[in-house]
Computed example of a mutant assay.
Amino acid sequence: MTRTTGRPETLATSLFTVLGTLVTQDAAYQPAPAPDAPAGCPDQVRASIAAVVEEHWATEQRDYEEQDPADRPGHPFTHLSRLNAHLGLGLH
């Protein structure tokens, strides 16, 4: 995976690149179920999200901790933390 600067737009680009590559190159990929189907996250999508979170974790955590608390809301690390907790990645 290409290293990025860790800013929100590069995180989004990185995530969409990973997922876009997954969708276009993986013939076994199945799109998300219809809204009335049981909730779930395909293993391939979970793995892609985990790869993006792990790639940016240390850089964004460091940047977050250096920010004034008033500037932290909406920081990319808050989103990475939410994904980490939801997916049970165990990053600290």
Rank of each mutant, 00 (worst) to 15 (best):
residue 50 A to E: 10
residue 73 P to W: 03
residue 34 A to D: 14
residue 69 P to Y: 10
residue 62 R to M: 10
residue 33 P to H: 02
residue 70 A to Q: 11
residue 48 S to G: 15
residue 43 D to E: 15
residue 64 Y to M: 06
residue 46 R to W: 01
residue 42 P to R: 00
residue 67 Q to Y: 02
residue 65 E to H: 09
residue 46 R to K: 02
residue 80 L to Q: 05
residue 34 A to G: 12
residue 59 T to N: 06
residue 67 Q to W: 01
residue 71 D to M: 10
residue 76 P to W: 02
residue 66 E to D: 12
residue 20 G to S: 09
residue 25 Q to G: 15
residue 47 A to V: 08
residue 53 V to G: 04
residue 75 H to E: 07
residue 45 V to D: 04
residue 40 G to L: 07
residue 48 S to Q: 14
residue 58 A to P: 07
residue 43 D to T: 14
residue 70 A to S: 13
residue 64 Y to N: 10
residue 63 D to P: 02
residue 19 L to Q: 04
residue 38 P to I: 08
residue 59 T to V: 14
residue 62 R to S: 15
residue 81 S to K: 06
residue 61 Q to H: 14
residue 39 A to E: 13
residue 50 A to I: 05
residue 69 P to D: 06
residue 57 W to C: 13
residue 81 S to A: 13
residue 30 Q to M: 11
residue 68 D to W: 01
residue 40 G to D: 08
residue 52 V to Y: 00
residue 57 W to M: 12
residue 37 A to P: 01
residue 44 Q to I: 06
residue 62 R to P: 07
residue 65 E to Q: 15
residue 38 P to G: 12
residue 72 R to E: 05
residue 81 S to V: 00
residue 69 P to F: 10
residue 28 A to M: 03
residue 36 D to I: 08
residue 63 D to Q: 12
residue 19 L to P: 15
residue 40 G to E: 07
residue 20 G to V: 06
residue 51 A to V: 03
residue 62 R to T: 15
residue 35 P to M: 07
